[in-house]
């Protein structure tokens, strides 16, 4: 059974419908539509400045859309939506921050609430389960600020999952990671999508690390988007239409290389190796 067929019958978790975001005269998102289902692993691919973070902020309700609608699990998206777990981009904590990996995960339960929390055995056990689910038990007692980039990502994923969301958004979780850590994070997110039936949407400027596990790709260029399976989207004709000029898609040793026209600011961004990316 193909990934698309397997996911085909599942519940629709996120529906983005004709979203427009205009900042001044600049159209950051221009009629973006796509939908993802429970258990699906979706990559939001685009160069820096293509509008990935803006799209996430719209889904989270932090940036208002000028037009269109976002629905989460069938309902209108609202702020403080417990159905969405979020892993932000560029997470850097001071090494002196008095916060163990275990504490950061537990903050995912109810740290948005005011007042005093009563520590309980159930909370500790829940945090323990989540740490185990992301293979983070080994460094659960260490300060988050002293963990490596890949370890921090896993702890943040556990933090986002502990509230039992239906949708997990991760903004550039592979930026600044070495190749091996990036592979581990991708495999972990794919496993979470399958086992917990969560819709996972992660943004990346490099498509190759996601290719082995991706059910669906949303390709974003200059504020416009196409979505479908990787075979349907990552093709010369489809991407040429999206970019508005000719784009070559090369397959080299199982890797995909997208070469946009010379002189474009997007040109050849997929050619760089992930470990050399700044992720800015």
């Amino acid at each position: 059974m193909s990934p698309a067929a397997r996911a085909g019958s599942a519940e629709e978790i996120l529906a983005v419908e004709h979203i427009h975001v205009q900042l001044g005269a600049h159209m950051v998102l221009d009629d973006v539509s796509f939908a993802i289902r429970a258990g699906e692993f979706t990559g939001l691919i685009g160069a820096n400045g293509a509008g990935k973070t803006t799209l996430f902020r719209v889904v989270l309700g932090l940036t208002p859309a000028s037009g269109g609608a976002v629905r989460v699990a069938g309902g209108a998206r609202s702020r403080r939506n417990p159905l969405i777990g979020y892993v932000p981009q560029k997470f850097l904590l001071d090494p002196d921050m008095p916060l163990r990996a275990r504490d950061l995960v537990a903050l995912g339960i109810d740290a948005h609430r005011f007042g005093i929390a009563r520590p309980s055995r159930a909370r500790r056990e829940r945090a323990e389960q989540m740490l185990a689910a992301v293979d983070a038990l080994e460094f659960a007692e260490r300060r988050v600020g002293l963990l490596s980039g890949g370890e921090q990502q896993r702890v943040l994923i556990a933090h986002a999952l502990i509230g039992r969301p239906r949708l997990l958004l991760a903004d550039e979780p592979l930026a600044n990671l070495d190749l091996r850590s990036a592979e581990e994070v991708v495999a972990l997110l794919a496993r979470i999508a399958r086992e917990q039936r969560i819709a996972v949407l992660i943004s990346a400027h490099e498509i190759n690390p996601l290719l082995p596990v991706m059910d669906r790709v949303v390709y974003l260029a200059a504020g416009r988007a196409v979505s479908g399976s990787a075979d349907e989207v990552v093709r010369s004709d489809v991407l040429s239409r999206l970019y508005g000029h000719h784009v070559d898609v090369l397959h080299v040793h199982g890797r995909v290389i997208v070469v946009a026209g010379a002189g474009e600011d997007l040109a050849g961004h997929e050619l760089r190796f992930p470990e050399a990316e700044s992720g800015a």
Binding site: L60, G61, L62, R79, R80, N81, I84, Y86, P88, Q89, F91, L93, M97, L99, L104, L107, D110, A111, H112, R113, F114, G115, I116, A117, H159, A160
Partner: peptide, 23 residues
């Protein structure tokens, strides 16, 4: 401090996460 310490800690760790969770 007793009233705001949890949202304050969360916003200190990451204003983005705190904002996304409705703080």
């Amino acid at each position: 401090l007793l009233v705001i310490h949890r949202p304050l800690l969360l916003s200190t760790v990451s204003p983005e996460i705190a904002g996304a969770r409705g703080v």
